[in-house]
Nucleic acid binder design. Structure first.
Length: 852
RNA sequence: GCACUCGUGGCGAAAUUGGUAGACGCGCAAGCCUUAGGAGCUUGUAGGGUAACCUGUCCCGGUUCGAGUCCGGGCGAGUGCACCA
């Protein structure tokens, strides 16, 4: 599948900006006392331009007819009660700069924003303060809206979405129904992660080291009827497409890890005295002759069948013990436990008699729920064998077998036995032994040969497994979109007809979750009692709501069509704008939101609703902002409130500083002091624009620097190298200031255009001051002129024997002999050259290296 | 344990295909201007040395005329995944 990367923005033909005919209307913002520094008042300037943009509809794009559409997406925030976090602003500003740049470069840029307002966050907070989420959320949204509008983002607010509003979640429910229709949504009783504090089921992705990622409570295992999406069916596609997606490597690798593809084999071991076989999954079929026992997951269905009568009590007790065990101990306790079933099976390769155990280090939900244990070559099996050595001796007298040896440097085998650790090597230094006909093979050869040999006997087949599980989308909570399903005694499970959507979330005062395992909605008969859409008889609504991540898994499809109320997304509009050209966001969503969004897009494509399967052609993960070397947290008291800084320094300075403090994709350290340097730069910019002369000619030396900086900024912004773009502009400002004469208009005008994506309000103010009526964002992107940027005299570094000894200034087109002559003419360089140079290396425009 | 990203002044950080290490900014120092200044302006600022010079990009090797950059091996940090066979 070839999707062309987004074309590098080509500046449109430069049009001559028209001078304003009207007199300047803005207030003079500088205190005219000459002893005062040049400084502008961002409070007035920013308010003025935000008003002007709103009045002019400057941020609006023609959705139906845009000729050069560019969809710039940023991750929408969850509207917390605390308000906008500096991390939000860092993310948004970086996206906004890219969007504004593309606009100046001639694209019709659509940059929407909205609110991920449903979810446990909001609900838990409402519970905590004794409020109702349906009342609290709009307040939080309003507060966010106020803060966002002050930060100067070029957002087309006509396309705002709010996932908690019926006109949005109506279509979230529609997405659910498409999944259901396509057989991708199903219900099953499953062991699920249950958070006893949040009183809800969590997706695997929301469990961190056995604890709830939201509240930190120990997660328990429960068996509940749940709705799932078949994400695992898409595992291979989700993995494969990562190869060609233009995404940050960190994000791709996180997804690869999460999908967790493993190639191996399923191998059957026949159980003695039963007409049954244990199927195991292994990635190391080459070690099969070292498989000295089998282990089933405690809940494996074969356990009841094979367990011998003398072992039945112990096995049952073990099953009970592990069933009740919560996931924390399952995931973190390293001590291996297990129980012998009394049964034996036959190793299909070696013919050896192997005992069958159960142990909770084998997971029922991966592979076949059973393994062949190779203590000689697997650390976990080794540990199990060590821990239970006594039991082994008495139960079945098993031994460890060595079937892979390390080949030491001399080519000899390192046959140290007995093993004191598992040797898990599989590279060039490993070779098969004690494996009959397969001795001497490498691991890779052994895998292939043994699998083929067992396949011939119908005892094995090559398989691929994924760690990716199906997505559990049910939540036994209140603050989410009700799942649009009705249960009818006659008709069974009935999807709500699309024309009856939305299934509106009712306002209920009592929305607190309880321990019952059912949603609070299940306590409201007046809501869940409904007539069956199919037969009209009394029926019952599904009372679970769906996972918040379903809301955000398709919101990018909604934005362009957000003004349409009859379809989730308009086909023409979608064809024009999607897939998203540029998505910028935090990598904390690498495996949750971004994977689900890809899955939903693929599923909708398969359902015939879309004609592309990857939603985000280009994704860039931004870094994290820390404060004075430490992560920001309430307990440390080092959380930044953007409002304070915006009031003190202005949104433009704050934005620009956030972009300047480090490489955007790596994040950086926020130091309160640092912002002053950026503000100084903007003040100076304002000063030179205000005082710019129109008489005389621009200085050619300054113009040369100007064209160099135009080039630099134009290259840096698409690469998200915002910090160096700003540095280059500062450098140019220093050139201007050190120039003998007051800056000429021609020397500052393009700089205003360059700075506009970073400091949009000030740029507009400057642009108006320069006499333009139209917005600077419709003025184009300055064109870099190679001829004007070229230096006539250049500096060449001179090395002698690879050591830098000085520099010479020569004409730009100087050839090697000229440079060499110039270099040898410098006594400080010549003194290191004794006799005739043996060799001379010349890199044009850069360096001369004389080997003496 | 596995994967990814990354180790450069007092600090945040720059550095095209390998080609003048430390741009830009903070901080600091000196000076100017001020009744005053957490303002503004000028200059300096990797370390050592009066100087010529010498030493310097986490450590050890390698490739190269030349390595912060490439290769091999360590050490350290951050993030993600993790009893996934």
């Amino acid at each position: 599948p070839a999707v062309a990367p987004p074309a590098a923005p080509q500046p449109p033909p430069q049009t001559q900006p028209t001078r304003a005919q009207t007199p300047r209307e803005f207030r003079y913002l500088v205190r005219m006392d000459t002893t005062e520094p040049i400084a502008y008042d961002p409070t007035d300037v920013e308010a003025k331009w935000q008003r002007t943009w709103a009045e002019r509809g400057s941020n609006q794009v023609n959705i139906e007819q845009a000729e050069r559409p560019f969809y710039a997406l940023m991750m929408f925030p969850y509207p917390s009660a605390e308000g906008l976090h500096v991390g939000n602003l860092f993310a948004f500003t970086g996206s906004d700069i890219s969007a504004r740049f593309h606009r100046q470069a001639g694209y019709n840029v659509f940059q929407p924003l909205g609110y991920d307002a449903f979810g446990i966050h909001s609900e838990n907070y409402a519970l905590k303060i004794g409020a109702h989420p349906m009342e609290l959320t709009p307040k939080n949204v309003a507060n966010f809206q106020r803060q966002l509008e002050r930060s100067g983002l070029m957002v087309d607010w006509r396309h705002k979405v709010d996932t908690s509003q019926p006109d949005y979640y109506r279509w979230t429910q529609w997405v659910f129904l498409q999944m259901y229709k396509q057989g991708l949504a199903y219900k099953k009783a499953a062991a699920v992660n249950w958070c006893p504090s949040c009183k809800t089921v969590l997706a695997n992705e929301q469990v961190q080291a056995g604890a709830c990622e939201r509240c930190g409570s120990t997660v328990e295992q429960r068996f509940l009827e749940q709705w799932f999406f078949r994400t695992s069916e898409y595992a291979e596609r989700l993995l494969r497409n990562l190869d060609w997606l233009d995404w940050s490597e960190v994000t791709r690798s996180a997804q690869r890890n999460w999908i967790g593809r493993s190639e191996g084999a399923e191998i059957s071991f026949v159980v003695e005295q039963h007409d049954a076989e244990v199927r195991v999954f292994t990635t190391r079929p080459d070690t099969i002759c070292g498989a000295t026992y089998l282990v089933l997951a405690p809940e494996h269905p074969l356990v009841d069948l094979v367990t011998t009568s003398d072992r039945i009590d112990a096995v049952r007790a073990y099953q009970e013990r592990t069933k009740r065990q919560d996931l924390v101990s399952r995931k973190t306790v390293l001590e291996k436990t297990g129980e012998f079933t009394g049964a034996f099976a036959t190793n299909p390769a070696s013919g050896a008699r192997v005992p069958i155990w159960i142990a909770d280090y084998v997971l029922m939900d991966y592979g076949t729920g059973a393994i062949m244990a190779v203590p000689g070559h697997d650390e976990r099996d080794f540990e199990f064998a060590q821990t239970l050595a006594g039991a082994f001796e008495s139960a079945c007298g098993m031994t460890q077998a060595q079937v892979i040896v390390r080949v030491v440097a001399s080519g000899e085998e390192d046959a140290s036995t007995p093993l004191d650790a598992a040797f898990a090597g599989s590279g060039a230094d490993a070779r098969l032994v004690n494996s009959g006909a397969f001795d001497g093979l490498s691991v890779a050869e052994g895998k292939a040969a043994i699998t083929a040999s067992l396949e011939a006997k119908e005892r094995a087949k090559a398989v691929v497994n994924y760690r990716l599980h199906d997505w559990c989308v049910s939540r036994q909570r209140y603050w989410g979109p009700p799942i649009p399903i009705v249960y009818c005694d006659s008709c069974g499970t009935v999807p709500v007809p699309e024309e009856q959507l939305p299934v509106v979330l009712p306002f209920i005062a009592d929305f607190k979750p309880d321990d019952s395992g059912v949603s609070p909605l299940a306590r409201h008969a007046e809501w869940f009692n409904v007539d069956c859409p199919a037969c009209g008889k009394p029926a019952r609504r599904e009372t679970d709501v769906s996972d918040t991540f379903l809301d955000s898994a398709w919101y990018f499809l909604r934005y362009p069509s957000a003004t349409r109320d009859n379809v989730p997304f308009d086909l023409d509009i979608t064809a024009r704008w999607l897939p998203v050209n540029s998505y910028i966001g935090g990598n904390e969503h690498a495996v949750l939101h971004l994977l689900y969004s890809r899955f939903v897009t693929m599923a909708l494509k398969d359902g015939g609703h879309l004609d592309f399967e990857e939603p985000f052609t280009r994704f860039r993960a931004h870094g994290l902002i820390i404060r004075d070397g430490a992560k920001m947290s309430k307990s440390k008291g080092n959380v930044i409130n953007p409002d304070e800084y915006v009031v003190e320094w202005g949104a433009d300075s704050f934005r620009t500083y956030l972009m300047f403090l480090g490489p955007y994709q790596e994040g950086g350290d926020f130091r309160s002091q640092g912002i002053s340097g950026v503000r100084r730069f903007l003040d100076r910019l304002w000063g030179s624009v205000r005082d710019a002369r129109r008489d005389g000619d621009p200085d050619p030396d300054v113009m040369r620097k100007l064209h160099q900086v135009i080039r630099k900024v134009g290259e840096d912004i698409p690469a998200l190298a915002y910090n160096t773009a700003i540095a280059a502009m500062m450098e140019y400002m220093n050139v201007l200031r050190r120039s003998e004469r007051t800056a000429h208009v021609a020397e500052v005008e393009p700089l205003v255009q360059l700075v506009a994506p970073f400091a949009p309000h000030l740029a507009e103010e400057c642009w108006a001051t320069l006499g333009y009526a139209k917005s600077v964002f419709d003025s184009g992107w300055p064109v870099w002129d190679a001829a004007l940027a070229e230096e006539s005299t250049i500096e060449i570094a001179v090395q002698v024997n690879g050591k830098t000894r000085g520099r010479v200034f020569v004409p730009a087109d100087a050839i090697q002999d000229d440079v060499l002559a110039a270099a040898l003419g410098e006594p400080t360089i010549a003194k290191f050259v004794t006799g005739e140079p043996k060799r001379v290396i010349f890199v044009k425009g850069r360096l001369l290296n004389v080997i003496a």
